[in-house]
């Protein structure tokens, strides 16, 4: 797999929800291509019979006990850092257009 084209880069930026500045697509496509050519070193290793390790603790199905969750916030504290608050609720961008 070789480099990342400008078109691909703009697609990735869209998936990442990142607005790019003028000229950044060229810069990033080069840097990302360089990094990818480095990580291809992994192809030297045969992993056909190896399982993935997604986390190292070996813990499975860790649940909280009912009375353990002490991390609750008052509505006032939870909304304090929000950009816009209306009637005690955080204002977000609309997902659907009003008809």
């Amino acid at each position: 797999m070789s480099g990342i084209s400008k078109d691909q880069l703009n697609h990735i930026a869209k998936l990442s929800n990142l607005p790019l500045k003028e000229g950044e697509d060229t810069k990033f496509s080069k840097l990302l291509s360089d990094t990818i050519s480095y990580i291809n070193v992994l192809n030297e290793l045969d992993t056909s019979k190896v399982q993935e390790t997604y986390q190292v603790t070996g813990l499975v199905n860790v649940f909280q006990k009912g009375d353990e969750n002490v991390a609750t916030l008052l509505q006032e504290d939870a909304t304090k850092n929000a950009n816009e608050v209306s009637k005690g609720l955080i204002v977000t961008k609309g997902v659907f257009e009003r008809s």
Binding site: Q8, L15, S16, L18, F28, L32, N81
Partner: peptide, 23 residues
């Protein structure tokens, strides 16, 4: 939305890493 500024304020390094990860 809940806290912090909008995504255009990410620095160069963060943007680079987010995009490679997304890829």
């Amino acid at each position: 939305v809940r806290y912090g500024n909008t995504r255009d304020t990410f620095g160069f390094e963060a943007k680079k890493r987010i995009m490679l990860g997304t890829y």
